[in-house]
Design a protein around this nucleic acid. Sequence first.
DNA 1: ATTTTTTTTGAATAAATTATTCTTTGGTGG
DNA 2: CCACCAAAGAATAATTTATTCAAAAAAAAT
Lengths: 261, 261
Amino acid sequence: MTCLLKMRAMRDQLSVNERKLADFILENTQLLRDYSSSQLADAVGVSQSSVVKFSQKLGYRGYPSLKLAVYESYAGAGIGGGDEPVRAFASTASPLSQLGQKKLEVLENTVSINEVDQLTAAVEAIRAARCIQISACPGSVSVARYLAHQLLELGCWAVFDEGGKLQQRISNSLRDDDLLCILCDFGGEESLVDVANRAREHGVKVLSLTRYNYNAASIHSDIRLYVVPSDDEEDLQRLLFRSAQLHVIEGLISGLLSKKG
Amino acid sequence: MTCLLKMRAMRDQLSVNERKLADFILENTQLLRDYSSSQLADAVGVSQSSVVKFSQKLGYRGYPSLKLAVYESYAGAGIGGGDEPVRAFASTASPLSQLGQKKLEVLENTVSINEVDQLTAAVEAIRAARCIQISACPGSVSVARYLAHQLLELGCWAVFDEGGKLQQRISNSLRDDDLLCILCDFGGEESLVDVANRAREHGVKVLSLTRYNYNAASIHSDIRLYVVPSDDEEDLQRLLFRSAQLHVIEGLISGLLSKKG
DNA sequence: ATTTTTTTTGAATAAATTATTCTTTGGTGG
DNA sequence: CCACCAAAGAATAATTTATTCAAAAAAAAT
């Protein structure tokens, strides 16, 4: 699943040609099977080198690697017959059930995109931290508060303050055995990147939970967790995004719980 | 499946080197993934050209074709296997995935227990309300805050205050076009029932989201939404409970969204 | 609005992989 | 012992993939 997902998630910050490639692959996944790099290039209307560079930008050694990954992705989703995304929530009538279905898809994607080692690293970092500062962009404030509350309940010394000014003050007083958590929908937020950088200068570990793409906040972090956004209408997308963030956070909490007793 | 099968079937009619190749591939199928023809040749101890010829003898255009076919074979066998009950979050042993599975079960139960009309009634009530007071028992404070935040974001005049005293004061100032939301894990809380009763005396509608059982808070409500708890170990159960509460709330929010535009 | 800087792109080319040819080897039957 | 044939590999041709570099386009800065 990961590879095709990655493409969809990155679509926004790809260049024109790269997006053309991504779209073509997403639309004609099965064709890729017997396309060489230059055949693909021709089909899409770009140069062969662009294909290779695209492959590398996505993190693969080269075109053959990408091809295999795409194939894996595709086979993983589709071999069972159709490529329906796991129907749970039997009665389609209830709005709760419809939402549940959408949510399930987003959660599945989010689960598959997060590396296990990053997750365990996050749990360890939280456990090891003296103080935890939580910073969030406006869209993730409610999630941040939820996180802060859960952490406090577990006995972690967690602080969340939404006012940007205070955040920066607090981050100045962090020490090297502290942790900074950044929650962010897109990751462009200047101020958050600032906070992260300042914190790192003090040797503070930085944990980020952002939309899945290369973004400033994520890049300046030690531990990176992601959420894969859906492609729904805006309001709903925001809702689902938070829901997925919450799921990751619940994962962290449950990790903290299980290794506690 | 076909390709690996073919190899096994042909094993007898193959020459020495070819058999060596077939055996190696059958034993180390997953290794093939990142072997080039000459790497495979080295690993088996034959020449690169033998590898190519072997591929062609089996009916493929060349080595890459064979490789892909083997891969298809391998992947196909792994996935076609089981027909368990609603297994989402496939394969991975990621903790996120395990949590996801548990969560899915709780959510399914929660979805199935809530009547659609209660849900739409809740959405209508929220939309119709002038002011919304949110009250919660200690265990649901974080969820309550989340709800308050989302409602405010939607332009609803929602108030949540965790201090019990203030709650009661506020509820005295509610009027008959207001709404009281009660979030509660068990529903025994004296104070919440009090607040609810006082509110109803003023003609205020009461919406409750509680654990699914007959409980005081639920009985004294006009609209009743429920969460079905899991039977896990205590901490995890609490986590999942909140998660299900959040799901219902997300359902409400999404209901508000959809009928808004 | 214009220059500078950066990013993106593709042509040319280098590197690598894969396929073919052709010679050598080793076994078999005459 | 020699001709014959299948099979294997070395050499090499063909194809595919990856890198370099210069030009073009977009973004940023002045």
